[in-house]
Design a protein around this nucleic acid. Sequence first.
DNA 1: TATAAGATCTCCT
DNA 2: GGAGATCTTATAT
Length: 177
Amino acid sequence: MEWLGADADEVAPRLLGMVLTTRVDGEATSLTITETEAYLPGDAASHAYRGRTPRNAPMFAEPGTVYVYRSYGIHWCVNIVTGPTGSGQAVLIRGGDPIEGVETMIRRRGRADHLTDGPGKLCQAMGIDGSFSGSRLGERFALTGEPGARTWNSTPRIGISVGIDAELRFVASEPAG
DNA sequence: TATAAGATCTCCT
DNA sequence: GGAGATCTTATAT
């Protein structure tokens, strides 16, 4: 996946429409990525902004590394590291459409709706936790499909207090056809 | 060791 | 549409 070596703002829209598959507890779940968010170097909203720390270390690893962090002490959020190794950039997976393992997602979420409507929900539905952080794309966390297969729209980011002026959130638009 | 802040989700109205 | 819940991490003393 050489294209993951591009900057986060280029990789983020290409991830839209690709299939993300995780294997947890012997159960596979997969979804189509429909919403991503780019975090670039020098971005005050990025965890890598203030330098490398033990927790965000995976962001400075090579592209294709998975970076998982805890949000508000309750939820998990998953990123895919992009850009040159050591640049400290990543793409946050914000949402997607469930494809397979929906029953597993429902079981994990405890609800039948809003399964993968947000970063925390997505991780909970797919069984993603801190043990994924630092690992690379592979069996447990697989990314398949063709990059850039979907058309997309860019919007300002949400849920942060700084850097909201940049349009680094990417949402898959419905197929033109 | 203590304090402040955070890339969210859920329930209730 | 609005407010609360909850734990981890980084920084300063």
